[in-house]
């Protein structure tokens, strides 16, 4: 994709390992249960599928802006970053570690289609364990941040996990939701949704719409330094998991549904939110886009 000059290498095109190393302070990453340990999925061999020595996720410790953090990074190039038994257990283990170590934040670099179908039942239970662990870490006052900038985006149960976090950072090119376009078309038919309509797919699940809704907090350019800087700014900033905070979020979500609930398409939602000429939004670069949606953007409380 050609685009504006970036401030650094592409986040989207980097491997999971490189993303995490670039987000953390240089040289600070220490991997836990790395590939040399050869802990692989016990379920793929029976299906004659190749295994990965890290089961598609890198986890470890490091520093961000000099503060200790824990980080995980899903490798979309291995089975679409999907969560199986070992992959999920590495994420859950990292979050359990956070309860003992109390880092300044846990960073989840998500790039995933959700549950790994080849390990279906173990996969969904693993996603549930990750979800509970994220919320337990938040309840302990440690912020958990989701970074979504990979080619798979963040879907299925992991799309729920992202929204259980304190905050979500997204690039314009990334996508987030629960049921992806192919799944909806396969389940409900092309009359409900045409997954080959690229423009519709990007405006529905892409970073711009997610930030306009308030589902994601920041729209970033697709570069490693942009993600690093945005994550650095959010370290140590927890959204409290209290009755007052969740009642505020409840009211905010209810208001958004009342205002935008009649929208059949993201364009309708942008119009209902008060954007003039919503058709031009997909074409705007992030700074111009931010100015165009300033009055319409929903910001999560």
């Amino acid at each position: 994709m050609t685009g504006p000059r970036r401030a650094g290498p592409s986040y989207r095109e980097a491997s999971a390992r490189r993303r995490l190393a670039a987000i953390l302070d240089e040289g600070s990453f220490g991997e836990l249960l790395g590939p040399t340990e050869r802990v692989t999925s016990p379920h793929l061999a029976a299906l004659d599928l190749p295994v990965a020595f890290d089961d598609g996720v890198v986890v470890g410790t490091g520093l961000l802006g000099g503060q200790p953090v824990l980080g995980a990074s899903q490798e979309g190039r291995f089975l679409g970053g999907a969560v199986g038994e070992v992959h999920g257990a590495k994420l859950t283990g990292l979050l359990r570690r956070a309860l003992a170590e109390r880092p300044a934040a846990v960073l989840l670099l998500l790039d995933t289609g959700g549950v790994r179908l080849q390990e279906a039942n173990a996969g969904i239970v693993a996603v549930s364990e990750v979800m509970r662990a994220v919320l337990a870490v938040r309840a302990a006052g440690i912020p958990v941040l989701a970074l979504v900038g990979g080619a798979w985006g963040c879907f299925g149960g992991m799309g729920i996990v992202a929204r259980c976090c304190d905050g979500v950072l997204m690039s314009e090119e990334a996508r987030m939701g629960i049921s992806g376009p192919d799944v909806i078309e396969a389940t409900r038919g092309v009359e409900e949704l045409d997954a080959s309509d690229r423009a519709m797919v990007w405006r529905t699940w892409g970073g711009k719409h997610r930030v306009l809704l308030g589902e994601a907090d920041r729209l970033l350019e697709d570069s490693l330094p942009a993600f690093r800087e945005a994550a650095r700014q959010l370290v140590g900033r927890a959204r409290p998991l209290t009755l007052a905070a969740l009642e505020a979020e409840q009211a905010w979500l209810a208001r958004r549904l009342a205002d935008l609930g009649g929208s059949a398409d993201a364009l309708d939602a942008w119009r209902s939110a008060g954007v003039d000429e919503p058709e031009r939004l997909p074409l705007l670069e992030p700074p111009a886009w931010s100015a165009a949606v300033a009055g319409a953007r929903r910001v999560r409380p």
């Binding site: 939701g177 629960i178 049921s179 909806i184 389940t187 529905t204 809704l213 958004r256 939602a269």
Partner: peptide, 11 residues
């Protein structure tokens, strides 16, 4: 599973 639910941010 619907387009509207995704547009509105079901996750």
């Amino acid at each position: 599973m619907s387009k509207r639910d995704e547009v509105l941010g079901l996750n």
